[in-house]
Amino acid sequence: MKIRLLLTKSVLAVAAAFLMVVQVAGQATAIPASRQVTPEDLVKLLQSSPEQKPLMIQVGSHVLYTQAHIPGSEYIGPASTEAGLQQLRKRVAMLRRTQLIVLYCGCCPWSHCPNVEPADNALHKMGFRNVKILYIAENFGNDWVNKGYPTAKGD
């Protein structure tokens, strides 16, 4: 009886650990700080060299993008879905692997965003090594629009 109980506990512990790994793997918190860029620093970058803008890609919801997005950025779709990832891979397929790419979402608080980490992971697997992820602490409204940073509407 004791052995069975121990086995059950072990199986549950392994399952819980697996679920935690899966959860962390899809979260923005898995992205190292060295690959993050703050809104302030991105604005400075855009202002300092407007002719050499990075490719900026929004990997969240189209409805959110239509309401407000970074001028010049492109909508791809939620990278937490396979359709969104396919669109992302298709968009960057022909680019040089040294191209500076900035990914952003802002749908949810950073710790809960399901989109930026899969997008970052996909680009990394394709060989891109100059990718930055916009660190949005709360959401795009609070951390970008309400701070007065450049914003565009529509498609």
Binding site: S61, V63, L64, T66, Q67, A68, G106, C107, C108, E138, N139, F140, G141, N142, V145, K153
Partner: peptide, 16 residues
Amino acid sequence: MGNAKIGEQYGGVLGL
């Protein structure tokens, strides 16, 4: 199904 127009009418749904 929501859309950008309804989001704007509610003050901007720029986070979920």
